Measured scan of single mutants.
Amino acid sequence: MSYSVTLTGPGPWGFRLQGGKDFNMPLTISRITPGSKAAQSQLSQGDLVVAIDGVNTDTMTHLEAQNKIKSASYNLSLTLQKS
């Protein structure tokens, strides 16, 4: 079951990613910084990142996902799936 979260910026957003197409692993939330915008939302460590700002992550490399997140200036919309 997927869910959506919109973090209001600017960054830093307070989470780290792992995985990506180049690692043959789905993009997942690997760490959440305590007290951060991510920590105050529904994000959980281990959640799968399905889309970033409406763009499906199935074919994204780790770097492409990082760049997509960094390019979000004020709002960052994520679609996630609980692990």
Results as ranks from 00 to 15, higher is better:
G19Y: 03
I32L: 07
H62N: 15
D53N: 13
G20F: 01
S41M: 10
T28R: 12
N56G: 14
M60E: 01
Q45I: 15
G11S: 10
L43T: 02
T33R: 08
I69L: 10
K37A: 13
P12C: 06
R31D: 14
N56V: 12
I52E: 01
K82R: 15
F15G: 01
G14P: 02
I69C: 11
G9S: 06
R16A: 14
V55M: 12
V55T: 14
K37C: 09
L76M: 06
P10Y: 10
S83L: 12
Q42E: 15
E64A: 08
L27G: 01
R16C: 15
A38G: 05
G19T: 02
Q45E: 14
I32R: 00
G54F: 03
R16E: 15
M1Q: 03
S71P: 06
S36L: 06
N67S: 09
R16D: 12
G9A: 05
D47V: 03
T33M: 07
L7D: 02
K21H: 07
Q18C: 09
P26Y: 01
A38K: 01
L80F: 05
I32P: 03
Y3W: 05
G35V: 04
N24F: 12
T79K: 15
S36M: 05
S44D: 08
L80M: 14
L27Q: 02
D53E: 12
L27D: 00
N56P: 13
P26C: 03
G54N: 07
S71R: 14
K68F: 09
T59Q: 10
A65K: 02
Q18N: 15
M60G: 01
T57Q: 02
G20A: 02
D47N: 03
K21G: 05
S83M: 14
N56S: 12
S83R: 09
N24M: 07
I69K: 01
D58S: 12
L78D: 00
I32D: 01
S73Q: 14
N56C: 14
I69E: 01
L78T: 01
W13R: 04
I29A: 02
S71G: 13
N75E: 15
F23C: 14
N67V: 10
V50K: 13
S44E: 13
T61N: 06
R31P: 04
Q42P: 08
V50S: 09
V49Q: 00
K70V: 11
G9E: 03
R31M: 12
K70P: 03
L48P: 05
A72F: 06
I32E: 00
S41D: 04
P10R: 11
Q45Y: 07
M25Q: 13
D22C: 04
L76G: 03
I32N: 01
A38I: 03
S41R: 06
S77L: 11
A38S: 06
V5E: 03
V5I: 11
K21P: 04
G19W: 02
Q81L: 13
K21N: 10
K68R: 15
S71Y: 11
L80C: 15
G20V: 01
S36A: 05
P34H: 08
S4F: 13
L78H: 00
F23E: 13
I69H: 00
L43F: 05
L48A: 11
R31I: 07
D53P: 00
S41H: 11
Y74M: 15
L80I: 09
G35T: 05
Q45L: 13
T79S: 13
P26H: 04
Q42F: 07
T79E: 13
S30A: 12
D53H: 05
G54W: 03
T33S: 12
A72Y: 09
G35C: 06
Q18Y: 06
Y3S: 05
R31C: 08
F15N: 01
R16I: 12
T33L: 09
K82L: 15
V55K: 11
L43P: 00
D53W: 03
A65V: 11
I52F: 02
K70M: 11
P10H: 09
A65P: 00
L63S: 13
N67D: 15
G14I: 00
T33I: 09
A65C: 09
T61K: 06
M25K: 12
M1G: 07
L76Y: 02
A39D: 10
Q18L: 11
S41C: 10
T79Y: 06
A39F: 09
L27S: 02
R16T: 15
G35N: 15
F23H: 08
D58F: 08
M1L: 11
K68A: 15
Q81G: 09
K82D: 09
G14D: 04
K21D: 06
T28N: 07
Q66M: 14
T61V: 03
K70S: 13
L27N: 02
G46H: 06
L7T: 01
G19H: 03
K21L: 10
D58I: 08
F15R: 01
M1D: 15
L78Y: 00
L17N: 02
I32Y: 01
L48H: 07
Q81R: 15
L78A: 01
R16S: 14
A39E: 14
S83I: 11
Q66I: 14
S77V: 14
K82A: 15
R31A: 12
L48R: 11
D58G: 09
M60R: 00
G20Q: 02
L43E: 00
F23D: 09
N75L: 11
S36H: 03
G9H: 06
L76I: 08
L17D: 00
P12Q: 06
G20M: 01
L80H: 01
F15Q: 00
Q40F: 12
V49Y: 00
M1V: 09
A51N: 06
I52R: 00
L76F: 04
G11C: 06
D47M: 05
H62K: 15
K68V: 13
T61E: 05
V55W: 08
Q66L: 12
K21V: 11
N56M: 11
K68W: 06
A51D: 07
S4I: 14
T8S: 08
Y3A: 04
F15I: 09
G9C: 06
L7V: 03
P10F: 10
